[in-house]
């Protein structure tokens, strides 16, 4: 084979690998909404919600319960990732990267603030208040935030085609999002805090992706990601959970009750799916860029709807089907981009 053909083949392989990671991210992310939704009806979270609601009201109770669920989610994700790094033999690199706080790991800790207390907490709030399908599609808007930030902040290229793809995905997301909202508006019972959670998810994940891209320039994705979840665990278990306990919420007594088989199983399921969705997400960025990685990863919205339908039997509204189809079309617009344009991702 001649040099030119081999070159073309290699570049194609790299880019298809990037898209493959992004697609796996979508599948894992979609599955995550199953344990994420189920965990709300399991003890101790079910009882916790009821107990706090009696004294502090539904809204506060939901947020406090979501904090504990998110904290456990972060814990199981971190355990799954530690196992992953161990298997890959990357503990040495993990320690080396963690020590480089100023140039490198600070970006991952910063990313964890937006990814954890904003995006993941927001998602759990949306799942608890409105439902899994809504939570999934509400966050669909995050690539807009991500690609615009990456473009202005560090000049990541967005081709016209990628921009069109992102645009179509957004229209799809809005269709799905708007459908549920309109139904609720007409019935006069709008769960605003749930919608706020959905917005937190979209903004938080977009900002996280752009910040993480900055640290990923000079770090291993597997390692960077693990550090990002170490950061999130610090935020929950060392700062927020103790503060809520001090204020008087029964955080620890319910936290200890989480160690029962079914609850643990669901939490571990959430940890594995979410952990690997992040592994795939971060791995796709250096290969195809933050904007495209997020765009293809966005197929998770459709995956979530399919999985929720298969496992819970929830039949989606027609707006969800139309919106989901638009998301697929948008992703394919990006997917079929001429690969020669993607050799480097930044303008020179």
């Amino acid at each position: 084979m001649d040099l030119k053909a081999l070159k073309k083949q290699e570049s194609k392989r790299k880019i298809s690998k990037g898209y493959m990671w992004a697609l796996f991210c979508a599948v894992f992310w979609g599955i995550w909404y199953l344990p994420g939704t189920v965990v709300w009806v399991l003890n101790p979270f079910d009882e916790m919600y009821g107990a706090i609601a009696e004294t502090s009201g539904d809204g506060v109770s939901l947020v406090v319960t979501a904090v504990l669920i998110t904290a456990f989610n972060a814990l199981t994700v971190m355990l799954a990732l530690m196992l992953w790094n161990g298997t890959l033999g990357k503990f040495g690199e993990l320690v080396r990267t963690m020590k480089e706080f100023h140039p490198c790991s600070k970006w991952f800790f910063l990313a964890s603030i937006f990814g954890g207390p904003m995006a993941i907490l927001g998602s759990f709030i949306a799942m608890g208040f409105i439902g899994g399908a809504f939570a999934a599609v509400a966050a669909l808007l995050y690539p807009v935030v991500g690609s615009i930030l990456a473009y202005y902040w560090y000049g990541e290229k967005i081709s016209k085609r990628a921009a069109i793809g992102i645009g179509v995905i957004i229209v799809g997301g809005v269709t799905i999002f708007g459908g549920g909202l309109l139904t609720e508006l007409s019935s006069g019972n709008v769960q605003w805090i749930g919608y706020l959670g959905g917005l937190m998810a979209a903004a938080g994940w977009g900002i996280e992706g752009a910040i993480a891209g900055k640290g990923l320039d000079i770090a291993e994705p597997d390692v960077g990601l693990t550090l990002r979840f170490v950061g999130e665990n610090i935020i929950w278990w060392i700062i927020i959970v103790p503060v809520l306990a001090l204020v008087g919420y029964p955080m620890y007594s319910f936290a200890f009750q989480a160690f029962e088989p079914l609850t643990l199983l669901v939490l571990i399921f959430a940890g594995i799916t979410f952990g690997f969705c992040y592994v795939c997400w971060y791995k796709s960025f250096p290969l195809i860029g933050v904007g495209r990685g997020q765009g293809i990863g966005n197929l998770y919205g459709l995956c979530a709807i399919i999985f929720i339908f298969l496992f819970f039997g929830d039949v989606p509204q027609w707006t969800i089907l139309v919106g989901g189809t638009l998301c697929v079309i948008g992703s394919f617009v990006m997917f079929t981009e001429d690969t020669s344009e993607l050799e480097t991702l930044r303008g020179e």
Binding site: M1, L3, K7, D217, P286, L287, L345
Partner: peptide, 17 residues
Amino acid sequence: IIELASGGMLKDLEQKV
């Protein structure tokens, strides 16, 4: 190295089989 190159920090100048 590939990731550094696709991140625009290294430039791929020449290839050989």
